[in-house]
Amino acid sequence: MEDVLEQVTGWSGYTMSLYEIRKPNIDFTPSMYTCRRAEQKLELDGRVNKPFWSAADWTKPFVNIEGPEASKPAKQTRVKMLWDDEHFYFAAELEEDQIWATMTERESPLFLENNFEIFIDPDGDTHNYYELEINALNTIWDLMLTKPYRDGGVRISAWDIQGLKTAVYIDGEVNKPDATNRMWSVEVAIPWISLLECAPGRRLPVSGEYWRVNYCRIRWEAEHKNGVYEKSLNPETGEFYPEDISVWSPHGLINMHYPDMWGYVVFAESNESEWTQLPVVEQMKWDLRRLYYLQHKQFKRFGSFAHDLEMLMHLSDEKWSIVPQMQSTERMFEISAPIPGSSSRLYLRDDGRVWKE
């Protein structure tokens, strides 16, 4: 899903000044998933009940992007994942009694209709990540983003997933309002070679490593007129009703381009146990991210970043797991913290990138 500002201004890139960088309004409890090695070869047809997927668990059902305490999604969505030495595999099942789509050209703005979206940040630095959107007609939009729009990022729609395979299965009929519809499902196989540009060490993941991933489902309220579906208009405003946005890992606000809130997918062999514990270094990254949000709140209020790190930390009632240091000017900052039991440090700078060295 593209940001609302992007829809209004024609998909151009944005500088930080056009965005309010808001802290998510939920606790940091990202979803986790153990992605096991595939045991068979996948023949894509969009069906997700075949033996290939029996080795994978379903994710929990999607929740409102603003969090589980917000309104429940209108329809259930869930996902499976597998991997092997050639591909990263995805299966999605989307319950639906109104299955419709009109866009058939690649790189169309699919988020303006019902769709399913995949987001992948291989190294978890929140910069240089991938997005794939697909609709019920198996039309795709694949793109790369240099960094989140909030941090001045731009999208590269000319980037394509070379060797991408997708398939859609319809349990019902597309664009037939009188049809008996139950759901539509999606299968995706992404070759690793298309993801390695932003992957750690530019290589395949190994068992025990994890990537940041999230999924989004866009569903618009629709009605049928003259035998076709049309998005419903609010008679009081003359505008479309807001879309229903459900996700695997909630963000606490309506914006998919918050990679720091995406879930964790750990790659495992077929017989390895489920991964449930968030690594200590990831909690440390979140504490650095909290300082990032506080700094940008400071910048919005006073027009400059804070120089006093202790004062900044006292602005939060939450506990801290890090002992940070900061270098800052009025327009830039870099915060770091030592990783316990290691000679390495974590770093985060004003444009949101986080890394270890």
Rank of each mutant, 00 (worst) to 15 (best):
H87C: 14
L5Q: 09
D317K: 08
S17M: 06
N226E: 10
E173V: 12
E310W: 05
L348G: 04
S328R: 02
N115I: 08
Y241F: 14
R289K: 15
T139C: 14
S31K: 15
D350E: 13
Y293V: 06
E131K: 14
I193L: 05
W11V: 05
N181H: 03
V213C: 02
S316R: 09
S207G: 08
D350S: 13
L233E: 10
G46I: 12
S246F: 06
R212W: 09
K300I: 07
P30E: 00
E66H: 02
V206I: 13
V48E: 01
S108R: 15
V228H: 07
S270Q: 08
I193W: 03
A136F: 05
M326A: 04
W83M: 03
W184M: 05
G352R: 04
M332W: 11
R217T: 11
L196F: 02
H251M: 03
M16P: 05
T104P: 00
S316E: 15
V168I: 11
E187S: 07
E269G: 11
K72A: 12
T329E: 04
E117M: 14
L82N: 07
E131H: 10
S304H: 15
N49A: 06
S273L: 12
M144R: 15
G303D: 00
W262V: 07
G252V: 00
G263I: 02
P109I: 08
A158W: 00
N114P: 10
W58E: 03
H314D: 14
W211E: 02
C198D: 02
V4D: 09
V266I: 10
I120L: 13
D151S: 13
I120G: 01
S321F: 09
R331Y: 10
G46M: 01
L110A: 01
S342T: 08
K297T: 15
P51V: 05
D84P: 07
E357V: 09
Y210L: 12
N25P: 00
E236S: 14
L348T: 05
S270C: 09
A70V: 07
I65L: 00
V228A: 08
I134E: 01
S336K: 12
K356P: 09
M256C: 11
T77Q: 08
V213D: 00
P235T: 03
N25K: 11
D84T: 04
D123L: 08
R155V: 09
W320N: 00
F88L: 14
E95C: 03
D308T: 06
